[in-house]
Nucleic acid binder design. Sequence first.
DNA 1: GGTTAGCACTCAAATGCATCGAGTGCTAAC
DNA 2: GTTAGCACTCGATGCATTTGAGTGCTAACC
Lengths: 345, 345
Amino acid sequence: MDLDMRKMRILQAIIDDYIMTATPVGSRTISKLPDISLSSATIRNEMSDLEEMGYLEQPHTSAGRVPSEKAYRLYVNSIMQRAELTEAEKRFIKNCYSNTLDEVDEIVRQTAWVLSSMSKYTSMVLKPALTAVRIKHIQLVPVSDGRALAVVVTDMGVTRDTLINVPRGMSYQQLERVSRILTARLQGCPIRDVASVNIPELQADLNSQREFLNNALAALHKTFDDGPGGVQLSGATNMLNYPEYSDMSKARSFLAAIETKDVLYKILTEAADVEFSIKIGQENQEKDIQDCSVVTAVYKVGGSAVGTLGVIGPVRMDYARVLALMRHIGKSVSEVLTNLMEEER
Amino acid sequence: MDLDMRKMRILQAIIDDYIMTATPVGSRTISKLPDISLSSATIRNEMSDLEEMGYLEQPHTSAGRVPSEKAYRLYVNSIMQRAELTEAEKRFIKNCYSNTLDEVDEIVRQTAWVLSSMSKYTSMVLKPALTAVRIKHIQLVPVSDGRALAVVVTDMGVTRDTLINVPRGMSYQQLERVSRILTARLQGCPIRDVASVNIPELQADLNSQREFLNNALAALHKTFDDGPGGVQLSGATNMLNYPEYSDMSKARSFLAAIETKDVLYKILTEAADVEFSIKIGQENQEKDIQDCSVVTAVYKVGGSAVGTLGVIGPVRMDYARVLALMRHIGKSVSEVLTNLMEEER
DNA sequence: GGTTAGCACTCAAATGCATCGAGTGCTAAC
DNA sequence: GTTAGCACTCGATGCATTTGAGTGCTAACC
């Protein structure tokens, strides 16, 4: 018993229907479709085969059939056809980025919003990882004796600062000098490489406390990593509109999973190196969301991936549409960010 | 028909019971209480009176009675007695602040967590408003021609920065000079007054673009206002444990209300000038949360109020306990923040 | 061979109906 | 003023019945 074209076509029809209605699909529903000219009895036979092959499941004897996760996997791999957004939708996305979005956070928030409101699922966007961003300028600002604020300006217009300890008694002029040397040495250096840079001319100044520089650079490095706080969530309540979450306990477990963003952060960072990723139900490592599906995509700045965006929805999510949205929105946010970066450079 | 002591006592018993059980309270339940030696018939008569007076409501004829919002108002105003936390609870709170909490954000997050996990409701904490914080140091860091980063260090260890436009062609030395003058002039000045300070010696430097300074100061001022982003939320899913939210549509409207933090921000900022505030159901201005109650309190740094914390829960919330928690946690966070600030000063 | 009409069968959901019981209001007696 | 007693209300609970969408199987058909 093999999965011939006709079975494929029927499975597709079942999945398409189930994605729309969330109710088990009966044989008559399929046989009535205009491009399937088979009686319900034939469909029943095929469905029976598909069930035996593990693509369909029956909630109970006298109900219709429901696609299994295996079916969805097949669907996204082979059956599903690429969907395109309408012109109006593309315009809509474009409009969302046309306003004055001059801050990374603002762009990330807006992206999450567009994605959730167009998909009607819950969306999440991970802020750009700034490890690839290059240092433009470093300035140590004295705060009190023994403490200074290290300010880093990068080529993406992003600035970060962190309080660091400096050797007590260090003068304003000395700090200035260190700033100048650091800037000269680290200019153009990507954040991720900061720790490994060697700055011989400072060894003399800091002989007594050679830890200082390493600590400072490590602290700096850390401020560029937002952690779970770098996850922007949107449309969490959209999920409650789907019948699969009308059961309170399921709704609660979903909401609990996204309340602390740790799980989402983990998912998004792990997906940082694949263009598109689709995890269906049990394929997700995280217990709490094993009856959801997660679709992620990366977005880029100047050609290299810097962040991830994702949609989390019911397993019967409209994968084709979500992928189309992600392609388009991913491209848009990539462009906007790249422009922002060039402008600042 | 007046509200004599006995009626008060009965109303209190009804409210106490309803807060615990969330089910309409019958006359027998009350008459069986050890310190009420009246028959259920007598209680019924009293209940009938209380209903006529608007303190009780009947879901339907053969159900018990439920306190009205008017009753809760009376309860918090006159009936409720001050509750105290147990020693163990006080210790618990203390422990929560004993770890290395060296950042304001960390303290705020921790506070929200303690408050929600001890109250079992949803909690929110507004970050300290930094308008009262005093400037310690200002440094302009050149970024590119015409742009600089203005870094402000305050006496609370909080630093903020913002990109500003500076007159093109301004030299590094000039920026240095401006920094020094600004620091000298603004040192000790609370953020809120920054805009109104006059700095005559800079007029000469900036004659050609006298807008520059004002814009820069305004931009700075703005970075100290977190807006809705300054609301830390915790325990949102706690609410789903209460039967009043087992109705999906109510749960959804609550979750929608807190998803964007705008509403909460509004509530918390408006409550910034009252030590404790209790809003019961319809007393809340915001439509979305009119079947919740909101209790807020301010916390202080060095004696003056800088932020607000709040609990949002069902109208039948345990007001006495929540107030006790808020008193205690409010005091704790005030102390921790005050210490942090002194240390940095 | 594959396809289909027909039919018995299944089972969740809806419907109808009687019962139960927690609660009330009222009245008469204490 | 308080209380025992009693009729009454009405949602909740339980149970039997019906309904209907769906299945599987078989026999006939092309």
